[in-house]
């Protein structure tokens, strides 16, 4: 008797043949860049000229330049962009999680057209092309004709020149708008998996809505909540789309790390220094990814 699961539906060789295209792509475009960027970061590589053909090993020079205590917190330098990124990420995570939870609670155990419309709107903000969305937002933010100032005008406020006077706030609002769908879908799924009897029991016991949320619902969805925070942090840290709205300006006020990397590497073609920034970015990414993996493991989630 041959046991059922011993019947190989694919021979080992066929299996390898099926896997190899994926392996080649992943090695070439994920693993190799990951390692190569570390190597480049120790050289003076540029796009053109002698250092493009035979870049020289410069040791820690690029890293020392990044963290040079005299310059690094000046506008347009690495430290300053890290500081902006910190504000940007913290505000976006708070905003997206807050809005996502609010939306999922508003429509908790509710069906209907209103929910469909709302979820569709939020999801569209997430999946429609970023170049077109950035342009509609620059129209929305416009000082003279923009919808935002028109509405604020009804209340006697403004007009404000959003992208010039409050650029960091503007890209934060834009990014929250674009990213809320994820936390909304995540938290809706999490809340939906709570057993109705838990909540009914609390209602019978006379718990107020806030008590029900604080004592019953939130503790049950805390794992997904933390997962959401880590993933959104990781993604927001790497997001490039604010570039489409402000190009990092005015005067570097929205130059978050992603845009800073782009400017150093592709405006000045300083690949060595750009790579050193990329290595720092990837180290932060790795740290966040490990936090995520560890938290999943502690929750006893089987890696599906």
């Amino acid at each position: 008797m041959v046991r059922r699961d011993q019947v190989a539906l694919l021979s080992g060789r066929m299996g390898l043949a099926f896997l190899s295209p994926a392996l080649i792509f992943i090695i070439l475009f994920l693993l190799f860049p990951f390692l190569w960027v570390v190597v480049i970061s120790f050289t003076d590589r540029t796009l053109l000229g002698a250092s493009a053909v035979s870049p020289e090993f410069v040791g820690l020079k690029n890293y020392l330049a990044l963290f040079n205590p005299e310059r690094w917190m000046r506008r347009g330098e690495f430290g300053y962009s890290l500081y902006l990124t910190l504000i940007f990420v913290a505000s976006c995570v708070a905003g997206q999680m807050g809005l996502g939870i609010t939306l999922s609670l508003l429509f908790f155990h509710r069906e209907g057209v209103l929910k469909e419309v709302m979820y569709t709107l939020v999801t569209l903000a997430w999946i429609l092309p970023e170049a077109a969305m950035a342009f509609t937002w620059s129209a929305f933010f416009d000082r003279d004709a923009g919808t935002l100032n028109t509405i604020l005008g009804w209340f006697g406020l403004g007009p404000y020149d959003w992208l010039l006077d409050y650029p960091l706030l503007s890209i934060i609002i834009f990014n929250i708008w674009r990213g809320t769908a994820f936390s909304m879908l995540l938290m809706s799924a999490a809340l939906g998996s709570i057993r109705p009897s838990y909540i009914e029991t609390a209602m019978v016991a006379g718990a107020s809505p806030w008590q029900r949320f604080r004592d019953i619902m939130f503790p049950l969805v805390r794992p997904q909540f933390l997962t959401g925070i880590v993933l959104i942090t990781l993604w927001t840290f790497n997001v490039f789309s604010p570039f489409l709205l402000t190009q990092g300006g005015p005067a570097f006020q929205t130059e978050i790390v992603a845009i800073h990397t782009y400017r150093v590497a592709f405006r000045f073609y300083e690949f060595g220094r750009g790579s050193a920034i990329a290595v720092v970015v990837m180290l932060v990414n790795l740290l966040l990814a490990s936090v995520y993996l560890l938290s999943q493991r502690r929750q006893g989630v089987r890696f599906r």
């Binding site: 960027v37 790497n238 997001v239 790390v257 782009y262 590497a265 990329a278 970015v281 990837m282």
Partner: peptide, 11 residues
Amino acid sequence: SVVTGTAAMVP
């Protein structure tokens, strides 16, 4: 998610 467009643009 670690080797994103941003971090990997140079290599």
